[in-house]
Every structure is written in C-alpha cells, then in structure tokens.
Amino acid sequence: MGLESVNYQCPACGGPLRYDGGKGKLVCDHCDSEFEVAQIEAMFANAEAKAEERAAGASAQTLDGGYVCASCGAQLMTDGTVAVSRCPYCGNQTMQAATFTGDFKPDLVI
C-alpha cells in the first residue's frame, strides 16, 4: 500500500492528468495530450529524485519541520505536528510518515 497519492501534471501544458481506462493512458483534458503511465511515472520519479537531492543539499534549518512535495518538488513548511497535508501548489495530498512514531503510532491512516 502506498503512503501517498500523486497527481501528475501534463508535461505539455501543466494541467492535471487523468487516467482513461479505455485508452489505458493518462490524458490531459486541456491540451488533449496522451501519455503512457510508465512514461509519466519515470519522468516524475526522475523529478522527485532531483527534488530530494536539492532538499538534501539544503540547510537543516530550511527543512526543519517541513517536507518536499513528491508531485511538484515544492519545499513546504509545517509545525512538526502535521501528519497529513495538501500541497498548496499542486494539490497533492502527502503523509509525513515520520510524525507517526512512539506510543501513539496508529495501525492505519484512512
């Protein structure tokens, strides 16, 4: 089971991509572009890896209490008690698993 959902943006226009089951592809309703799922996942995995490298290179103060959005790579700050949040830039819902520790760690997050 994945820890977060990802909303992919169209590489051509930046609009949201949706999965079309009939075509088996990710489709952009804004510019009518179509992409293979594996192609988009590889593209965004590469972007995520680059974002993590940039985040690792950033100072500890910059990321203290924050996280990097897996969808768009934005560095977002939280107060350290936030476990589930939504990126204000791309709308991706992200769960910070590191906040679930100790005696109060839940068995499941819905």
Rank of each mutant, 00 (worst) to 15 (best):
K25D: 15
C13D: 00
S59K: 06
C90G: 04
D29N: 03
F44D: 04
Y8R: 10
E41K: 11
E53H: 02
F104C: 05
D29E: 12
G80W: 08
A70C: 09
A49H: 10
G57N: 10
C87H: 02
L17E: 01
P88Q: 03
G80H: 12
L108T: 08
A58Q: 11
C31V: 00
G80L: 10
Q61W: 14
F104W: 08
L3M: 12
A38L: 07
C90Q: 05
E41Q: 15
C13S: 02
S33M: 12
E4P: 06
C10D: 05
Q75E: 15
A55E: 06
Q61D: 15
F35L: 08
M77E: 14
H30W: 00
A74S: 15
E34R: 05
N7V: 09
D103H: 07
A97K: 04
T78H: 13
S85P: 14
K50N: 12
S59E: 13
G22F: 06
S85C: 11
P11K: 03
R54F: 04
R86C: 04
A56D: 14
I40M: 09
E36C: 08
E52K: 12
Y19G: 05
V27D: 07
S85W: 06
A55S: 01
A47F: 11
A47Y: 09
Q93E: 13
Y8P: 13
A42G: 05
S5H: 09
T78P: 03
L3A: 11
S33A: 15
N92L: 02
V27A: 04
